[in-house]
């Protein structure tokens, strides 16, 4: 697609402005460290900060030394470390994949599967299809499953779990497209999709399902429509990346909205949001499936 020079210049300028600001913005959590590392991966970023946050079990918790390791943070950390080919990264990744491989949603256990089939029918999903929970001891949810799939795919790490996790995401999509946090129907009501979870699911499914699958199409259309007047940089950034991954026409409009939000909300100090905006405003936008040299 050919764009005017002023448009290209404008994107580059805003992206560069964020990237130059990012190193100075403080951030304590794993999500912030990982997104910052990704956003600065071409600017000499050091992966060791993120590596030091790894839990001895192999997973990453939300904050260094705080709380249980989480599949969402572990998947994101693995994606963020992928561009770095230093010798220290490989064993760190192996430990992380080891941890992810044994962590499963509770519904994968026969006892809970039986409970969900016989008694617990208020929330409709197929317990035979499981992905990753946020933390150990809970059922599978969309965001940690999507990020874990992205981690396995970006490292080309073979696992049967990916196929089951893809099935789980397809099973739990909202009836009219998009993804809620984890379920589609609860207590007889259709749940509404959320932009960020929808974008994460779509990014993780790219290339694993048919791009013209009605679910993919309606989910992309939902994203483009849902955020067309939004000011939220966080959701806009996720949506721009997902729409761009499928070359959806709505990507350009949302990218303009994101650009506007970045320039009109200079006070936004969240590393997490700034790093996501930087990734979405790359040219072309980052889509979590970079070809590793």
């Amino acid at each position: 697609m050919i764009r005017g020079w002023s448009e290209v210049e404008s994107f580059v300028t805003i992206h560069d402005r964020i990237v130059s600001r990012l190193p100075r913005v403080p951030g304590q959590g794993t999500e912030e460290a990982a997104l910052k590392l990704l956003a600065l991966r071409k600017s000499g970023a050091d992966p060791n900060t993120l590596i030091r946050m790894q839990h001895p079990s192999g997973g990453w918790p939300g904050f260094l030394g705080i709380g249980p390791p989480s599949a969402f943070h572990t998947g994101l950390a693995l994606v963020a470390l992928r561009p770095f080919q230093t010798p220290s990264v490989q064993p760190v990744a192996e430990r992380a994949f080891g941890w992810l491989s044994v962590l499963d949603g509770l519904e994968s256990h026969w006892l809970w599967r039986w409970k969900f089939r016989v008694f617990d029918k208020q929330v409709q999903f197929d317990p035979m299809k499981s992905g990753w929970p946020w933390v150990e001891g809970t059922v599978s949810w969309v965001a940690p499953t999507a990020l874990s799939i992205l981690a396995f795919r970006s490292w080309r790490h073979e696992s049967d779990r990916v196929r089951t996790a893809v099935d789980m995401l397809l099973d739990r999509a909202c009836p009219r497209g998009g993804w809620n946090a984890g379920n589609s129907v609860a207590f007889g009501f259709e749940l509404s999709p959320h932009p960020d979870f929808t974008a994460m699911a779509l990014l993780s499914l790219r290339g694993l399902t048919q791009a013209d699958l009605p679910l993919v199409r309606t989910s992309l259309d939902y994203l483009a429509k849902r955020l067309e007047d939004s000011q939220s940089m966080y959701s806009l950034a996720w949506a721009v990346m997902a729409l761009s991954a499928y070359s959806h026409g709505g990507a350009r409009r949302l990218r303009q909205e994101l650009e506007k939000a970045v320039t009109t909300q200079p006070a936004i100090g969240s590393t997490r949001v700034l790093a996501l905006a930087a990734l979405a405003l790359e040219d072309p936008p980052y889509i979590f499936q970079e070809v590793i040299p």
């Binding site: 959590g29 999500e31 918790p61 939300g62 904050f63 705080i66 709380g67 249980p68 989480s70 969402f72 929970p133 946020w134 933390v135 001891g137 809970t138 059922v139 949810w141 965001a143 940690p144 946090a181 984890g182």
Partner: peptide
Amino acid sequence: GSIYGWPKNL
């Protein structure tokens, strides 16, 4: 949520 997830299923 940054420690326990969304929703707070634990």
